[in-house]
Design a binder for these strands. Structure first.
Lengths: 114, 114
DNA sequence: GGCTATACATAGACATTCTATGGGAGCACC
DNA sequence: GGTGCTCCCATAGAATGTCTATGTATAGCC
């Protein structure tokens, strides 16, 4: 059996959403499915996490929305990245990189520092 | 100037503490300093995060404590990893690895999945 | 006496994620 | 025309964990 899906670490959801939207406008449901597919079901974004996050990002001016019809002929709120959102994405990606690097340093060490 | 220290992502503090204790028993203050030094000040563990975390880990049986005297001749609560703590460390390290890999997949992608 | 570093601790604010639940609309099938 | 499935949005409430701020105390140095 495949391993259980992981809980998201706080802060990474914003980064993931911004990143997926950098590929072009999309509605929330699609964002969640893309993340799920790309990670091989490792990251599952629940709708109760997704929609609050989208509202939050929009409120901060990093994304903006418009009602449209989806490929499946359903009403859908399509989000796109704003310029400030693009900036934010760069910043958060850099922060994520620094963070992973730092944690990795600790995990790789096999003795206390002098 | 060096970049600002990062906020911890939820869940990673436990992992970091367990890892530092895998090098041998230590008191909380030292744990915080080691993490800080190893990461080049990128990760700063505040005392208000550290001590609650230590109590949490002890309550869960992953670490255990004993009052001793520190190298500086001060009273110090020295923590050590239990067997269950060692198990937990392996589990959390593996989870962390899977998580980083998953996020990296998304960050590296430059188009939506088919 | 005053300062800094060491060492532990807690309260309260804060942000975010998860679980659970709700609704509605399109489409296929019997 | 009813049933069920996928799509799509939304919110409330609980749970968790981190941060800021504050308090205590002792050792050692000047």
């Amino acid at each position: 059996m495949s391993p259980a899906p992981l809980d998201l670490l706080q802060g990474t959801l914003d980064l993931l959403i911004l990143k997926t939207l950098s590929w072009g406008p999309a509605h929330g449901y699609a964002v969640a499915r893309w993340i799920q597919q790309l990670t091989g079901e490792v990251l599952l974004v629940g709708e109760g996490s997704l929609y609050p996050a989208l509202h939050r990002l929009e409120e901060r001016g990093w994304i903006e929305s418009e009602w449209r019809l989806s490929e499946h002929n359903r009403r859908a709120k399509v989000y796109s990245l704003t310029n400030r959102g693009r900036q934010q994405l760069r910043a958060e990606a850099a922060t994520w990189g620094r963070f992973v690097e730092a944690v990795t340093k600790v995990l790789r060490a096999n003795a206390q520092p002098a």
